[in-house]
Amino acid sequence: MDSGQSTQEPGNSIRVTAAVNGMVQGVGFRYWVMRRALNLGLTGTVINRADGSVLITAEGLPSAVDGLLEQVRSPSAPGAVHDVEEHRSAATGEFEGFAAG
């Protein structure tokens, strides 16, 4: 039943790149995103950008990606999320885990 393998099989996984705008730097947002992404079994990164936004790149099952984005848009997210611009594409499998940079 459980092969010990990740659910990140290329045929099942997608990638989302999401620019999160608002008051999302200096409020613990990146580490909050990282914890949620890891709990959902996602791989990827979350980084601050020079324009004050945060960039999330996440790969995994569509339901897990949707769950992360739902949490990012929720009132429980640290700071104040004003807008999330997302782009979906095929997963590349390049990430080993999920890191906050």
Rank of each mutant, 00 (worst) to 15 (best):
D2R: 13
D2Q: 12
D2S: 14
S3F: 13
S3L: 14
S3V: 12
Q8N: 15
Q8D: 14
Q8I: 09
E9I: 14
E9G: 13
G11P: 05
N12H: 13
S13G: 11
R15H: 10
R15S: 09
V16N: 04
V16Y: 06
T17I: 10
A18K: 06
A18C: 08
A19Q: 14
V20P: 08
N21W: 13
N21E: 14
N21F: 14
G22R: 03
G22A: 03
M23E: 13
M23S: 15
Q25F: 05
Q25I: 05
Q25V: 06
Q25H: 06
V27R: 06
G28P: 03
Y31F: 13
W32E: 11
W32Q: 07
V33S: 02
R35E: 11
R36E: 13
A37L: 06
A37V: 07
L38W: 11
L40T: 02
G41E: 03
L42Y: 02
L42E: 01
T43P: 05
T43G: 09
G44R: 01
T45A: 08
T45K: 04
V46Y: 02
I47L: 12
I47F: 11
N48D: 07
R49C: 12
A50I: 13
A50P: 10
D51H: 04
G52A: 07
G52P: 05
G52Y: 10
S53W: 04
V54D: 06
V54I: 10
L55I: 02
L55K: 07
L55H: 02
L55W: 01
I56T: 03
I56S: 01
I56R: 02
T57S: 08
T57E: 12
T57R: 08
T57M: 07
T57Y: 01
A58R: 00
G60C: 06
G60L: 01
L61N: 01
L61V: 00
P62G: 04
S63M: 11
A64G: 04
A64E: 05
L68E: 07
L69M: 10
L69Q: 05
L69D: 05
R73W: 06
S76P: 00
G79Q: 08
H82V: 14
H82E: 15
V84R: 04
V84A: 07
E85T: 14
R88W: 14
R88F: 15
R88C: 11
A91D: 09
T92P: 03
G93A: 04
E94F: 08
F95T: 04
F95Y: 11
F95N: 00
F95A: 05
G97C: 12
A99P: 00
A99G: 08
A100E: 05
G101H: 09
G101P: 11
G101T: 09
